[in-house]
Design a protein around this nucleic acid. Sequence first.
DNA 1: CGATTTTGACCCGCGC
DNA 2: GCGCGGGTCAAAATCG
Length: 320
Amino acid sequence: MPLLHHEDPSSSLLFSNMPGATHRHDLSGAVDVAPYVMSFADYLHGAVDYAALARGFDALPDHGMLIGGCIDNSNSGAEKLTAPDAAGGGGATPMTANSSVSSSSSEAAVGDEESDLCRKEKVKEEEEEEEEEEKEKIKEGEEGSEKSKKVSTNPKKKGEKRHREPRFAFMTKSEVDHLEDGYRWRKYGQKAVKNSPYPRSYYRCTTQKCGVKKRVERSHQDPSIVITTYEGQHNHQSPATFRGGMHHFVAPHAAPSCFMSQDFLVQQVANSMINNNGHQMGINPSLYLPSLQPTLQQHQFPDYGLLEDIVPSFIHSNQP
DNA sequence: CGATTTTGACCCGCGC
DNA sequence: GCGCGGGTCAAAATCG
């Protein structure tokens, strides 16, 4: 996927929309993305749900730049995150600031396998979308009384498959694993990642009734890269947003489709950028938008369901 | 003292 | 049916 390059080669942002991708990453690492705010947002509007990501920008401490992102619609657990390099299909995609690699690549890496999965999942998703909402409701209701139950996601209906919300993943070059994105998260688990020395952490939005989750893991291919995957959409504004006097309303329910999330992201991004005191802050110049920006705006993504769809373009751009 | 993190156990889906 | 891996829970520990 194409990247937008800025003047500063040191930082680069790579966005990839990966429908099949399962991760969303916050780029908390990137600190000042301000200059890109507008364009970024616009960009997002067109296609992806990077809002969430974007928000990370404003908060990003000192570490990191956004390397890439992708949206994953696939719900089935088929998501896999691969290191960018890996995704590249063997390191084909460099994630350096100059070179662009994308998270998509990571997911893309999984591409072959995932592409099928993603597509299947896509379909499922639609069907399950409704179910999910119901589940969530049920959950809420049950939560209080049936906590004693162990780990049963949905004790009530066994027949129902676990449904997952669209995910958005992106890679960030950052020293810190958990990037600040404006929301408050509570870590609820950590698991070792197969074939990787780095564990994957699971976070949940601490806001009541907000079921947004995110996973954070470090690429074993390039330890400096953090892969963040968002799942679901916030049904509230971020604390940061409030502080900044943000004004955008965010869709109250889980996004049924990638596009929803995209809007969401856009808003978030915009918000984050405008955040503090109404000043535009943030987006790090180091944030590079992929050349696909135009593409996104035009909604030309062939199929968001597949990473490969996106990744390839992005990869190609880098590789003649 | 409340909120968050840590961590081992458990559940679930999937492939063989 | 079994084993594996991913994801989640929840008690205990830690933090602010």
